[in-house]
Design a protein around this nucleic acid. Structure first.
Lengths: 248, 248
DNA sequence: ATTTCATTGTGTAGGATATACACAATAGTA
DNA sequence: TACTATTGTGTATATCCTACACAATGAAAT
């Protein structure tokens, strides 16, 4: 095994001899969530002349899988230091049925490891990769047909996010620096797929003791100006570590 | 690619040419939990002339990863139809440092997918595999040094189990058909690593509405004979599906 | 300038749930 | 027969969750 390999492959080389650079049979797919104008969004790629799919990639020979996910994320969004969490591996041999490539390395069976990312919408500049013609945000509620089992991967990611909301206030990573309580509530509601009581929501959020109420209000809206809040990063980090309730 | 391959390999063939039967770079490890005499147990293998490790194996070319885990479990415990859950993939390139094999297929880097299983102790007849000399239960609190990152894999499994206890009454799979409330409490306590109040525990368990109190008592103990309980499978299954509390 | 209206800010009462704690009953043992 | 560790059951309190009401406000409509 040579010590160093070419650090990049052409699309053609990838198809035929991806194993020069990457582990065989293993891929990574990222479900990248954002939040904008009251809607939960997910970042999708469109293959040249083909279907939509999740941004994904492969694992280099001497690279950790976590790092692969980070790298893919960086390539697609330009973002570093993102909240990124592995949530499930998808290992059905039929998961890629209908694959377009019948030959070469790329035609192999791939087990894919799913990660979801929470990013601040406004900071992202979507970038298609070499095999793609488009890279853009979609409303979670309105994603088109996706390739292979990518729809299921997305659904599982959302499900995981929804559950983790119970014990971890992960939404920090989706919100801008300053935000109003109604905006935060909208985010919870889209993730949970359920309306929440405005007053109880506020009480619950404040009880977490991770928010700071600012003096400013958000003006420009057509009604009473809501206060702005920001996260108290220290308290937020502590809450993330400890978990929220416990149950036992 | 030939359609059918030999369904088994000798240990030597596995070392040198495992890829005839298995996917490269991918393995499965199982953390098999049991409960006996008030202690949470985990099933470990000992390599011939080597360290202890988790029961694991590889993924056949046309087999789902879930099935691989099921197969490995069956081989080690003789059990079918077991509660088995994927919990994390471990993909650090350094995770197998100190590997004994320097050559051949087995020397490759492996990303491993962790599953944990909950089994009824009394039904298990531990069986070593071809590479192992021993297969036996260890107290979770007293497992020896394990190979590679297997200790961390076990810890992560336990952590996952502990958290899932909050929303799913998974212990069904660890208990015998009939059991007493103190026995059930002992199980919760060992999983959680924490003492619980006897009276509140009972109330909480009964409130789940998944237990049936039997007329019989467990005799033979040195004190007041406790009642026996069993799970109401229907209600239990419903509780497993729905989750327990919700939070939101 | 005044009214309108959707929205925000804040509080309270009631119910459900969790926690802390006490005493009687009992099966084997001394 | 008394003793002891354990089990069965209940209650009072605090805490949390849920449902709901009313005043304040800022832009838009009149």
């Amino acid at each position: 095994m040579t010590k160093r390999k070419s650090e990049s492959l052409s699309p053609e080389e990838l198809r035929t001899h991806g194993d020069r650079l990457f582990l065989s049979h293993l891929s990574v797919d990222c479900v990248i969530f954002g939040f904008h104008e009251g809607q939960l969004k997910v970042l999708l790629l469109k293959w040249k002349d083909g279907p939509w799919c999740l941004p994904g990639g492969f694992v280099k020979h001497h690279e950790s899988v976590d790092y692969s996910a980070t790298r893919i994320l960086k390539e697609r969004t330009g973002l570093d230091e993102i909240y990124l969490k592995q949530f499930h591996a998808f290992g059905d041999p039929q998961r890629e049925r209908g694959k377009r490539y019948k030959q070469g390395w790329i035609a192999n069976r791939f087990v894919t490891i799913g990660y979801y990312a929470l990013v601040e919408y406004s900071k992202v500049f979507p970038q298609p990769d070499l095999l793609s013609s488009e890279c853009k945000w979609w409303d979670v509620a309105a994603v088109p047909d996706l390739i292979y089992d990518h729809k299921q991967i997305m659904t599982t990611a959302l499900e995981t996010l929804r559950l983790s909301l119970n014990d971890h206030p992960v939404v920090y990573n989706l919100m801008p620096l300053k935000f109003t309580m109604p905006e935060l509530q909208r985010l919870y509601e889209t993730i949970l797929g359920q309306r929440l009581d405005r007053r109880n929501f506020q009480k619950r959020m404040l009880a977490l003791d991770i928010l700071v109420k600012l003096k400013e209000r958000k003006t420009g809206g057509a009604h009473k100006a809501p206060f702005l809040y920001r996260f108290d990063k220290k308290k937020y980090d502590r809450a993330m570590k400890q978990g929220l309730v416990g149950g036992w």
